[in-house]
Amino acid sequence: MKYALLVYSDQSAWDGIDEEEAARRRAESMPQWIALFEEMGKADPESTGRELVAASEAKVVRVVDGETIVTDGPFAETKEQIGGLFLTTLPDLDEAIRLAALVPAAEYGSMEVRPIVER
């Protein structure tokens, strides 16, 4: 089964903190990320992961009556936004949930496990 593991977190937790604090937080979670990459590589060597630029930098595009309308910022005004995603092929849902729980964001945000449709 192919899965997308979507990383949700509250970007505002990073608002207004200085570079030093941000670096400290990143360093703090680094061992967990390394452990995650190792486990994910073992489960599926071809799995990929990408971090996304903050949702506040996003453009929302809609076509209404043939006219393209572009607005700023995240589509939904929810606290948690997608901050990144993993694409991976795993034996089953139990394994997908196990790996999702290893993502540090599962502790301070949440993870969404979405099976990918295969046709």
Partner: peptide, 14 residues
């Protein structure tokens, strides 16, 4: 079928 729920007796950790 769609979410990949396994058909098995779960491994020890589960």
């Amino acid at each position: 079928r769609e979410t990949g729920i396994p058909f098995r007796v779960p491994p020890d950790h589960l």
